[in-house]
Structures are given as C-alpha cells and as structure tokens.
Design a protein around this nucleic acid. Structure first.
Lengths: 190, 190
DNA sequence: CTTCTAAAGCATTTTTTTTGCGTTAGCGGC
DNA sequence: GCCGCTAACGCAAAAAAAATGCTTTAGAAG
C-alpha cells in the first residue's frame, strides 16, 4: 500500500503548518510545556483552533510533529579524518543535544501519542543516516568499520537509555567511552 | 507526577486510588488509550472527576502512575543455576513483556508527562533491582560477574532502544545474543 | 470520644474540544 | 490564463472536559 500523497501540500496549507510549528516552538520557550493549549497556539499562529484540531487531532500529536522536526539533524556530521574521531565527535554532540532539558522534552513528545511508532522510527532513521555517512566515509578511506547495528546497539542505545531513564549520569566522556568500547571490543579483526 | 507522598495514605484515599487505577486498566483494555477521559475513568471508579483532577492533575499523569505500577516486576527473577542462563531468561522475559503493544504503550505513558524523570527513574530501578539480584546470586556461587552498568548499557539499553525506536526487529534470540555478547566481550578476566 | 484537617463530594464557572456549514484558495484540465 | 473541483480553512454554536469555591466526610492523633 502506498501512502496517500498529501492531497494539497502547497500554498496556504504549507503556510499554516509553518506558522503553527513556529508558534509551538515560541510558546514552548516562553511558557513551557504546561501552560500550552491548542487555543493558545492557534491564536499565536493566527489560525482558528478548529484548524489545528482538524489537522493534528490534539496537542500531543502536534507536539510530536514539531518534536520530530526539531530532532532532525541540521546537516552532515563533521569529518575529522578518522572514524574514531568522527564517531566520538558525533556521539558527544548527540548526547549534548539530546540530554538537555529541551532535548529530553522533545524526545518524550515524539514518543508520546505515537502508537505505531512512526515518529520514533523517523528519529532513529535520522541517527542511522548520520552514522551511515560516517561509516561509508571511513570505508572509503579503507578503515576497518563496525556494523551499523553495533553502533546503534552499543553507542546510541546506551546514551538514549540513560537520557530517558537515568538522567544525571551523563557527561561527554561517557559518549567517548562508548565509542571506544566499540573500537575495543566490537571491531572486526583484520 | 505521582500522587504526592500521601499525608493520609490509608482508608478511603487508598480505596479511591485502587479503584481509579483499576478503572484505568479496565478502560484501557475496553476502549484503548484514545477514548479514555477523566470523567469516564471517574465514573467507572465511582468517584467525581474533580477528585481525579485534584489528585493526579490530568489524564497523562494518571496514566503515568498506572503505567509505572504495571511495569513493576511481579517477583524475584527465576534461578536456573547459572548467571548466563538467569540473565538470558530474564532478558527474554523482559523483552517479551515490554515489546508487546501493551508494554510499549505503558512505557510511553510512563515517560510522557514526566519532566523530572521520576517515573522513568523508577522503571529503571526495577530493572536494576532484578539484575542486581541475579548478579549477587552468581557472585555467591563464585561465578565471574559483569558490572551492573555493563548489563544496563549493553543488554537492557539496546532492547529498550529497539522497543521504543525500532519496533519490528525484535525476537527472543536478540535478547539472548545481547547476553552472550556481554559474556563474550565484557566479562572481567579471571 | 473528640478534635483537627486531608481528601472527597457537589455545584458552578471557565476553558477546551467538537461539529455543522459557508467560504477560500490550491491544483489540474482545458 | 481561466474554470471547475474540492481540500482545507474560518466562524459560530453546541458539547465536553477542566478548574474552582464551598461543603461534607472520615482518617489519624491525642
């Protein structure tokens, strides 16, 4: 089954979506997650509440939509010349961004009210994309390269678990240690 | 947020909490997460909606409260005579329970609307408790034992990451493989 | 048994959500 | 470029949920 192509993706609809997203982000900063209501967002965005309800269903889904957008990486991961350096740099940045109060909040919003895991899937797809870029790059340089799933299972997953379930145990060195562990214990032998 | 450390934990308050929790669980099965409202829960529980609002704040917090309760392990983890067997058995059971539709839903509820991570902290504390039991048991038998954080980072975290972010990649063998990996690559040398 | 007060009930008000219907403006065909 | 079709929006009314002030009930302590 192919996903139904958005019936009318351009013009006004696009403008409404953008201004609503923008309103959510602004109000999240100003008033925080609590004290955020659909009528408030709609007013700030210059649309009627019913537009928001009809398009997003409820506040939770709207927040999820905004969160996924916000968690999308800005560009290509940095190239420092070696896979270990690249991965460490990426992991530290990932942890830094995701473990902030705002980051954790966006992750929770992306997960909440997402029964089929569509939002969550997109989030992990972002990480996959970034890591694949690093691995492909290293492979092009002729370096030994771990499997993608090894990086996901033993670098990304531990960071995300601590971010969500054990906050307060997180510093940049933890990210570097996880990368080091992969190189130490999971690298295919030459 | 959990109901504050009750100043008056017995009698009627306890009965109200129990009947409200019970109503939530029943209605979650009957009507699913959507189509669940505070007035509905209150009616089923035989209390007034304002009682629920005053005690839990909103539906999300109530669901979080119920979810944490539901995610609490029932008893001691099984003792099969060896750490590897115990861990494998525990991990398979954990994955089985958590990766079900209901399990994922409870995890999401526990995370949503939990800004300070109190609910999440309790969830991971449950896992810590169970694993510590297994490790202590093994130590008592004189077995070599991995660090608790190694098990959390490289067994629990990968499972949880896939449950939340990459559903559809999960089977019991994955849990066993993760345990095997710990024994293979993370065990302290004798 | 009495007192004190946290927690529940009830009624009312406020706010949010839903819904019906008319209007606007993308989009495709000509 | 103009026209027709209809998805998506606006508006307003109705329904539902959330918040609140006041009253009552019933744990817990003395």
């Amino acid at each position: 089954m192919t996903p139904r192509p958005a019936a009318r993706p351009g013009g006004r609809s696009a403008r409404v979506q953008q201004s609503v997203h923008e309103a959510v982000r602004a109000l999240l900063e100003e008033r925080g997650r609590d004290g955020l209501t659909v009528p408030l967002v709609a007013a700030r965005a210059g649309v009627t509440p019913s537009t928001v309800y009809r398009r997003w269903g409820d506040l939770q889904e709207l927040l999820g939509d905004v969160a996924v957008e916000r968690l999308r990486p800005e560009g290509e991961p940095a190239d420092l010349g070696g896979l270990r350096e690249d991965l460490e740099h990426w992991a530290v940045a990932f942890l830094e961004e995701m473990s902030s109060t705002a980051g954790r909040s966006y992750i929770r919003d992306a997960l909440a009210g997402d029964p089929d895991g569509a939002n969550a899937g997109r989030c992990s797809a972002y990480a996959v994309e970034q890591i694949e870029t690093l691995l492909a790059r290293a492979e092009g340089r002729g370096e030994a390269v771990p499997a993608l799933d090894v990086v996901l299972d033993h670098v990304v997953a531990p960071m995300m678990y601590r971010i969500l379930f054990r906050p307060g145990l997180l510093d940049p060195q933890y990210a570097r240690d996880l990368v080091l562990t992969v190189f130490y214990r999971f690298m295919p032998l030459p």
